[in-house]
Amino acid sequence: MRKPFLLTAALCLGLSPGPAVVAQESQAPGLLRQAALSADLYRLGLAQEDALLVLAAAKMRRALDFLPPPEAAPTLTGWEAMAEAARELAAGDPLLLDLIEDSLAESLKGVATGPTFLIRSLADPEGASVELEFSGGTLAEVYVEGAIGNRVSLAVSDAAGNPICRDSPESHIAYCDWTPAEDGAFLITVSSLDHSVTDYILVTN
């Protein structure tokens, strides 16, 4: 299971998160964590040929209204594509197909809190960085989704260069969250684990 290196993991590995981060209390997953979970569910559902898992991923992603449409971000798998994959996996099972259609017909309350996103091409396989401002005392999130089949890595460091978070999964998605101690700039670095050129979308809250 893919797990980002958060503050606790950094301490266990002997990394110093620096003074830019405060300890995080238990809290509900952030919106971008839900985006990452939907991608994980989708990937698992396809691997296991499980229409219900793929349907769950589609419903979760459908509720995240802040994500740009697939035509604006080609590497981002839209909920419609996930729903169609669920239908294909359920082909030949009328009861399961009816369940999928009924579930997708439900009225959903979307989430539109206004995160920002950058759609970019990773021209340098070694990585690309962007400096972004985050507010102190509130959960900061960064989510990266590349094209399926291209493994990406995500790293966050503070203005002093202290490592805050690193997520290097064996997949096309990566996620980091932390709570800054105060307002400030953080360096976000995205790289390709396959050392290949790829497009990706970076979403922050």
Rank of each mutant, 00 (worst) to 15 (best):
Q48H: 05
S107H: 11
S107M: 10
T77R: 08
T113Y: 11
T113R: 08
G110V: 03
D102C: 14
R43I: 07
P94G: 04
A72Q: 13
T113A: 09
L104F: 00
A47L: 02
D102E: 13
P69N: 03
M60E: 05
L52R: 13
L118R: 04
D65K: 07
A86G: 05
A57S: 10
G127W: 00
A51E: 00
L44S: 12
L67E: 05
P115S: 02
A91C: 09
A72P: 13
E49D: 14
R87M: 11
M82F: 03
L108C: 10
T75G: 08
S121M: 14
S103Q: 10
M60L: 09
D124S: 08
V54M: 02
T113M: 09
L46D: 06
I119P: 12
T77P: 14
L64H: 09
A123P: 10
E84C: 15
A58Q: 00
V130N: 10
M60H: 03
P68K: 01
K59Y: 06
R120I: 04
A112Y: 15
L99N: 11
R62T: 06
A90S: 02
V54K: 01
T75R: 05
L44Y: 09
G127L: 00
Q48F: 03
S107N: 15
A83Q: 07
L108H: 14
F66W: 00
A51L: 04
R120F: 08
L67N: 05
L104I: 04
R43T: 05
F117K: 02
G114L: 01
A112S: 12
E84N: 15
L55I: 04
L64T: 09
D65M: 07
S121C: 13
D98Y: 08
F117D: 11
E88V: 15
P125M: 06
L64Y: 08
I119Q: 12
A47C: 04
L96Q: 07
E49G: 14
L95A: 15
A56P: 07
F117C: 14
R120A: 12
F66C: 00
R43A: 08
P69K: 02
A72E: 15
A128R: 06
A105T: 08
A123I: 14
A47S: 06
L46P: 04
K109P: 15
T77E: 09
G45W: 03
G92R: 07
L95D: 15
P115Q: 01
P115E: 02
D124A: 09
D124E: 13
D50W: 01
L67H: 03
E80A: 12
P115V: 02
D98M: 13
A83C: 12
A91H: 11
A86W: 00
E106H: 09
K109I: 13
L55A: 04
L118W: 05
L96I: 07
R87G: 10
T116E: 10
Y42W: 05
Q48W: 03
Q48N: 09
P69E: 06
A63N: 08
L99V: 07
W79K: 00
